[in-house]
Design a protein around this nucleic acid. Structure first.
Length: 245
DNA sequence: AAAGGGGTCAACCGCAGGGTC
DNA sequence: TGACCCTGCGGTTGACCCCTT
């Protein structure tokens, strides 16, 4: 399986996305739906590679994304799942439908890792020890060691173990269990009301770029103030239902 | 008031897997 | 069956911002 060229390296724009680019991408996806990323740059005129478009969409523009403000429960969930599944962020993200794997990964690397280390240094039990033997903590270790079939079975076992452990470990509030009860079937984005603010932003973007700078680096003042706390302007997001197709 | 350091996060890179022809 | 194409994933980087000195 040779690695195909991702895209023409010449003429491909890199770096932060501009509101105009976001708008182009969102408009296109709104019309055609996500997928067929290869065709996106050509059909939209975006000077971006397909991967970049997909990434921008899945990590930032996609409906149903909650950004920043990881609550205590999510934090616990991530910690437990990381202990059980290792650095399989996509798998972990499937338990948190509102979060992207990139977001979780970043949060883990910037917050949780240090937090846990602190706790360990302090001599406390960080809660990762129980059940942590199920998978090699730290990522693909187990995967590398096991043949594919075994690996898949193991993943299933991991998930079961994770669910069980989480049930035991967490006192879940009624609002949360959906993600646990059916991890394989993430809540359809449209059904979540938390995203209203995001939808507003994208709506503005679509309407007339009403100052909602989607430039990833172009933070407005309020956001800058909240940034330290991990609070970011929710990325512009379309009404989930509109794009579900 | 300025400079340096550290923290945060969006985006990029390379690899791997699945699907199709 | 094998090669090619596309997508997804995890690790890493770099830019930006705030805080401390």
């Amino acid at each position: 399986m040779g690695r195909p060229p991702c895209c023409d390296k010449v003429g491909v724009k890199k770096g932060p996305w501009t509101p105009e680019e976001d708008l182009m991408l969102v408009s296109y996806i709104q019309e055609h739906g996500p997928g067929n990323w290869r065709a996106v740059p050509t059909n939209t005129g975006l000077m971006r590679c397909s991967k970049s478009c997909r990434l921008r969409w899945t990590n930032y523009l996609r409906p149903g994304i909650k950004r920043g403000n990881f609550n205590d429960q999510e934090e616990k969930l991530i910690v437990h799942l990381q202990a059980l599944l290792g650095n399989r962020w996509a798998a972990i993200a499937s338990y948190l439908p509102e979060r992207t794997d990139n977001d979780i990964k970043n949060y883990w690397n910037t917050h949780l890792k240090k937090k846990l280390k602190k706790m360990q240094d302090a001599g406390g039990n960080d809660g990762r020890s129980e059940g942590a033997g199920a998978a090699g903590v730290g990522g693909g270790v187990a995967k590398a060691a096991a043949p594919k079939g075994q690996w898949e079975r193991r993943l299933q076992t991991d998930i079961h173990t994770a669910r069980q452990a989480l049930r035991d470990a967490l006192s879940l509030e009624p609002s949360q269990p959906a993600a646990l009860a059916a991890p394989a079937l993430p809540t359809p984005p449209g059904s979540v009301t938390t995203y209203a603010s995001s939808a507003d932003n994208i709506a503005r973007l679509l309407e007339g770029r009403g100052g909602s700078s989607a430039d990833s680096r172009g933070l407005d003042r309020d956001e800058q103030a909240g940034r330290r706390r991990g609070r970011r302007r929710p990325a512009g997001v379309l009404h989930a239902g509109e794009l579900a197709a």
